[in-house]
Design a protein around this nucleic acid. Structure first.
Lengths: 199, 199
DNA sequence: TGTAGCATGTAAGCCGTTACATGATTGA
DNA sequence: TCAATCATGTAACGGCTTACATGCTACA
């Protein structure tokens, strides 16, 4: 059962959290849930990590594994244990809440616009706006699927938060695309075409 | 000089990008820059990683290292090479732009409100709102420091983007705190005090 | 004189990914 | 019957962190 007191990475708690909503899931099903929800606020761990993580949680007694006959084969189903629920609740109320970490390749690249000039940056922002719309649609589908099931009111809240975030981001990105364009072409600001061509 | 064609992690390009603004920096100075700017849109790598990364970039010929006498000791200063600028520009215009990844512990925990009830979640959102204000102030100072230096117009744009993001987030979080409270206490919705106390 | 900041690294180790492997089931 | 999906793992490896080590310099 290993050292129960060791502290776990947040992703462990994320998976444990998924199991706190549903009775019994296979690793495969956990992955699908993670892909469809966790992905928007955390990460979608690789399949291999899901299985490794579930094995660890099982060895700590935080989830219980059961081999269930399923037609001709057997699949392994995991459910959260009472100890798992307690552990998860303790983590929720006792551990310090970290500030979000954003890895934003679009912002990172925009930072370096002096190397490319305005036009490539504008195009990048347009493509990002498209991707945002797509993402938003995916999350909207998730929100839809949740419905108004009372047991899922917190997930619903989080989904709506995400939708709002995508909407705000879309507005800002549109503004940036405009500002970049005007800065690079037709205002009084110094032009940036291939500025810094020389290092 | 190693294999020049290998592709690098984005963090390498981030550091290379910092060097594309300034003439010559020590590893220590690169760390300070990363902490004060990169942190908001990407990551602030550990000192040890900065040095390792700079060594790699040097071995690839993308930066040039020079030992500069500084008082009684010598410090190692790095500057981006012409090859480095080209490499960075190529990355900017040719490599696919990934969608941002958000690791949002607050959202992750809010998802699990059914385990704690409304009040702890409301408190967490309040604390997050405080942290947001603090962060915003730090970024505002960065924006201030940039001023209206034309060579830093893109970094300025990105900083303003960040400020806007923090402002939007603050508004949404305030709304969430209210909704969580009313959902948990005084509306017609089913109460959540210690719902799911039993697993 | 001592502490904080400047400065530079190495080693161990965790988190998480991709690649690799394998096999059953379902439906076109 | 063939492909997609369900299902479960192991191995190798990269990225990044923490811990450890070391020494100089400026200033209170």
């Amino acid at each position: 059962m290993a050292d129960v007191s060791q502290d776990l990475p947040a992703t462990s708690y994320a998976l444990l959290g998924l199991l706190s909503f549903r009775e019994e899931l296979t690793g495969y099903e956990v992955k699908q849930w993670a892909d469809s929800t966790l992905r928007f606020y955390w990460v979608a761990p690789a399949m291999s990590q899901i299985y490794t993580e579930l094995a660890r949680l099982a060895s700590l007694g935080l989830v219980e594994a059961r081999d269930v006959p399923d037609g001709r084969r057997t699949t392994r189903r995991f459910r959260i244990s009472p100890a798992g629920v307690e552990r998860l609740r303790a983590w929720l109320v006792e551990s310090p809440v970290e500030f979000p970490v954003l890895k934003h390749p679009v912002a990172l690249r925009l930072l370096l616009g002096h190397l490319t000039g305005a036009e490539p940056m504008r195009q990048m922002l347009e493509r990002y706006a498209d991707a945002l719309r797509e993402r938003r649609a995916e999350l909207a589908a998730v929100r839809q699927a949740i419905g108004d099931d009372e047991t899922l009111s917190y997930p619903a809240l989080v989904a709506e938060w995400g939708l709002r975030y995508y909407d705000d981001e879309a507005v800002v990105v549109a503004g940036l695309a405009e500002r970049v364009q005007s800065a690079g072409t037709d205002t009084g600001r110094r032009r940036q075409p291939s500025a810094a061509r020389r290092q």
